[in-house]
Design a protein around this nucleic acid. Structure first.
Lengths: 230, 230
DNA sequence: AATATTTGTGAACAGGTGTTGACTATGAAG
DNA sequence: CTTCATAGTCAACACCTGTTCACAAATATT
């Protein structure tokens, strides 16, 4: 008895509306304004649903945002775990890690666009959540670095500092890559090369580090520069 | 809350309304939402002016935003120039530069808060403008680094890469510092120490770098990989 | 097949939004 | 003093906002 009364009767909208709302929000963020300046009605319209239907799935917009955030990070965390288990700490590791990470970013563009814009522009709750996730990555990377033979004498605090340097760099490059056009192959590859170089550069510095004295192993001539340079 | 909402009785309203609008927007961004989700009426209300008065000074909100951006960077550029001229490339330079820079950030908190939120959350025009400024700082730093005697053989491209690493790191730490409470002396000092360490670490890596081979001066035990790596 | 629960609809509200046009106060220039 | 452009006010508009409520449709449970 499929009666279509006012021509409003639509297809089976089982639990799909919820996902439709999330996708709609993600789309709008990707090609328009940040999430905070996104209206409930806008999202529902794009999802092909009447505004009031929103409340069947989320109490308000900020709840949608947090759900989106969770969705964004859950798969990312899982991927990072796998990378950490498979890779070994050698020269090729850097390239491999960067490659898999940036490929992942590419395949989940809208999610990263969302997170990127919320990192500093979002509500306090959002920002805090994101920064917590980032700090988690830093700690895990620091743990990995602790296993490097030439870093056994570096303090945990300095390891954290080094790891955050790497993660911050990757985050910045990720955001810069998101500014590129979606199918700018050359640009994205260039970004990958750059990322690898930068991380490698940091690792060179790391190898020179002594944390006990808060000083480098060698002065390496930084301060031996003659004052007549200017 | 000592806002002079009673500006109605004040005489000299000459060119002050324009600045009042800018200050109001800056205040709102600092303690509320990002600039994009800021309404014209909200700004005028805070400035103690009727909404229509806005159009006497700016065609629309985005024009206000660009003006704010310009105001934010003009003094910063000037300060950076002075630092670049006074400082010498030695060990103390890093500490000194970081100190003056972070002090400046502290004294211009609202401006940096504004820029920080617009970097990734703002309109395309805004983001582009900000990234252009950042790229400018990178280039200038790269020029400074080119004068380091132990970097004369590094390619211009790699110098750019190194400089962007430093700048990105400082940007990230700046944004992190802005998350701290305004009068959290300890936290801000800690951030300064961290910044100095990170920059110093990068410089150690820099000293190891050889750009002609895209490889480090020494394998330094990261891996005993043969030189024939892609 | 009858019932109950979830999910989507439509109308309506109170209030905020950008922008208009005509009008008025201000202060400088003639 | 008069003239005139600048800068601020007021009322009004058409539109978009979040949220409410009662109702209808679709699905699940009995």
């Amino acid at each position: 008895m499929s009666r279509e009364t006012a021509a409003r009767g639509r297809r089976p909208k089982r639990g799909r509306t919820r996902q439709a709302l999330m996708d709609a929000a993600l789309d709008l963020v990707a090609k328009k304004a940040p999430f905070s300046s996104l209206s409930l009605r806008e999202v529902t319209k794009r999802a092909g649903v009447v505004p009031t239907a929103f409340y069947r799935h989320f109490p308000d917009m900020s709840a949608l945002g947090l759900t989106l955030l969770d969705e964004s990070f859950r798969t990312l965390r899982q991927m990072m775990r796998e990378v950490r288990q498979h890779e070994l700490p050698n020269e090729r590791m850097i390239r491999g890690s960067m490659e898999t990470f940036f490929t992942y970013v590419r395949n989940n563009r809208t999610h990263f666009l969302f997170v990127s814009k919320e990192l500093y522009g979002g509500s306090p709750t959002m920002r805090q959540a994101i920064r917590r996730e980032i700090r988690l990555f830093v700690s895990e990377l620091a743990m990995d670095m602790a296993r490097f033979p030439f870093l056994t004498q570096v303090s945990a605090q300095d390891l954290q500092m080094m790891a955050s340097l790497v993660v911050n760099g990757v985050v910045a490059l990720t955001q810069e890559m998101l500014e590129l056009d979606e199918d700018d192959e050359a640009g994205q590859h260039e970004m990958l090369i750059l990322a690898e170089k930068q991380v490698r550069l940091i690792y060179f510095g790391v190898a020179q580090w002594r944390s006990d004295s808060d000083q480098p192993a060698e002065p390496l001539g930084l301060e031996r520069v003659p004052p007549g340079v200017e």
